[in-house]
Each structure stands twice: as C-alpha cells, then as structure tokens.
C-alpha cells in the first residue's frame, strides 16, 4: 500500500508536468492543426528564465527575498520569457506558412527548434544547471498522505498544475475570448466571417500555451533539479504523446493524457522493470489507441465532404 501510494505520488508529479506541456501542444493543434515541435524549446527557455531569476535573487542558498516571493518571481520570469518566444515563433515561423500544407510548418518548427537549442547552448553552455531546491524548501518538509509523506515541492507542483488546468478549462468554456478560441478551432474561415480576429486569437493561444510550458519548465527545475539545453526534446515528445493520447485538441484530454503517461511510467518502473519502461508504456499506448483510435476524450473527426 505504501509502495503503491508512493508510486502514485511519483506518477502524479511527473504527469502533471506532462499535462501542462500537453495543454499548450493541444491548444495550438486544435486551432492551427499544427504540430508545434518547438514547444519543448519554449519550455526549456522557461526553465532557464526561472533559473536566471533565482540566480539574480542570490541563488538557493543565499536568497535575498522570502522563498514565496522568489517562487512567484521565478514563475513570472518564466512566463514572460516563454510567452515572448512562443508569440515570436508564431509570428515569424508559422504565420508565413498558414496557407500551406499541414506538414510544411513541421520543418519550420524543427528549424526553430534547432535554432533555439543552439541559442541556449551559446548562452547557457551545455552543462546542466541545478536549482538546489532542497536548500530552498527543506527536503523533510511535507504533508502526510496516508502512510507516506509528500515533499512540499511535489505538493506545489501537483496543486499548481491542477489549479491552472481548472482555470484554463473555465477560461475556454466561460469567457468570450475562450469562446472565440473554440470558434476558431472549430472552423477558422467561418469564425473570421463572423468578425472574430483570427490572428489575435491565435496569438492568445500561443501566449497561453507557451506560458504554461514556461511554468512547467520551472516546476521541473524545482522538483527534479536538473535543467539543460536539450531537455525540451524528450519533454516535447512526451507532451505530443500525451496530447494525442488524450484526444488531440481536447483540453481535458491533454490533462488526462499527461497524467496517464506519468502514472504509467511510475507503475511500470515500480512493478515491472525500469529497463523496459518505455517499451511497456508505448505498448500500452498502442493498445489504448487501437481501442480508441481518436484518443481517450477525442471525438472521431467528422469528415466534411
């Protein structure tokens, strides 16, 4: 039981980070039908912006401000950096290709991804950076959860991402801008004819998706500790997987997909084997897709004739 709970917490932490990333992925996909392969790099820059802010504030061991303020400032820095990069990507890499075939922006995304990785390598070098979170938030702090104790940072990560997802869900479903986002993702041309400023909606989606990625970056830095210039590649793949698994374009689907992959990885490692973790998780996902070809919460696409 204790082992099971521990693995659940492990999986939830990892899964909520995947979910945050998958949200940005899924929103962009929903609106542009574009696989934004540079999303992982946006996340990486968010992590480095958070780290930069931490360094400015004196580093984990010699903070000049209270811890909560440092955390807020780190998240703000990450949000700023990531959303700036996300919006710039949209404007300069994807917008020129909006009228072309669907796989063409894939190469722009890959080019942008190479560029951003190399830029990070130039500015931050290849050595990993570590947040030294235990010096920030003591490693024996935490809240009890059944027989085990959950570290405060994990609590922070899980709670923050759940709150963000709920907020996002409400924003998409309850606000006017959210409605515009849904309209544009349903039918871009019709939305434009109804007087919706499509360009603006797309920019907003990139802004929010990238901000979520930035937050995810700082969270990974806080909870796992290591950030490095190429961290976006694997994370981007996981996010893509989570988004598709949940039903691409669906916001609750992305959350569910992210959490499922996180949990599947934890339980596979815990109960079966770490060596074959990827093999088993991928095998599992294949089975899920065979049973539900449009993802867990995705609706089968209606083909317009």
């Amino acid at each position: 039981m204790e082992f099971f709970l521990q693995q659940t917490v492990n999986g939830l932490t990892l899964g909520s980070v995947y979910a945050l990333l998958a949200l940005g992925y899924s929103m962009v996909y929903g609106i542009l039908k574009l696989l934004n392969f540079a999303h992982g790099e946006v996340y990486m820059f968010g992590a480095f912006a958070g780290y930069g802010m931490l360094t400015i504030l004196g580093g984990s061991s010699a903070l000049v401000v209270p811890v909560w303020l440092a955390l807020v400032l780190m998240f703000l820095a990450a949000i700023l950096a990531s959303s700036a990069i996300g919006v710039a990507l949209e404007r300069f890499a994807y917008r020129p290709l909006r009228q072309s075939t669907r796989i063409a922006p894939l190469i722009s995304a890959i080019g942008a991804s190479f560029f951003l990785q190399a830029a990070a390598l130039l500015m931050f070098t290849a050595n990993s950076r570590t947040f030294n979170t235990p010096q920030l938030i003591a490693i024996d702090s935490g809240i009890p959860f059944g027989p085990i104790r959950v570290w405060m940072v994990r609590v922070l990560v899980i709670v923050t991402s759940f709150v963000l997802m709920v907020l996002l869900y409400l924003w998409v479903n309850r606000t006017k801008t959210g409605k515009a986002v849904r309209a544009v993702s349903f039918d871009r041309e019709a939305a434009a004819m109804m007087g919706i400023d499509v360009d603006k909606v797309i920019v907003v989606v990139f802004l929010i998706g990238s901000a979520l990625a930035g937050i995810g970056g700082v969270m990974v830095g806080l909870v796992f500790g290591r950030i490095f210039h190429i961290m976006g590649f694997v994370a981007g793949l996981k996010a893509f997987t989570a988004a598709v698994l949940g039903g691409i374009g669906s916001i609750p689907g992305a959350m569910l997909g992210g959490l499922m992959i996180g949990l599947a990885e934890a339980f596979t490692t815990g109960y079966i084997s770490s060596t074959f973790q990827n093999l088993i998780v991928f095998g599992l996902l294949i089975v899920v897709l065979l049973i539900r070809p449009s993802g867990l919460l995705g609706r089968p696409e209606l083909v317009k004739v």
Binding site: E265, F267, S274, N278
Partner: peptide, 14 residues
C-alpha cells in the same frame, strides 16, 4: 534507465 530522463523517483521507490 535512459540518460535523457530526469525523474528517478519511481525507481528510487523500488
């Protein structure tokens, strides 16, 4: 584990 993962908590539990 592969080199590119950065969360080992599930493995640590085992």
């Amino acid at each position: 584990v592969t080199q590119d993962i950065t969360d080992f908590s599930a493995l640590v539990s085992t």
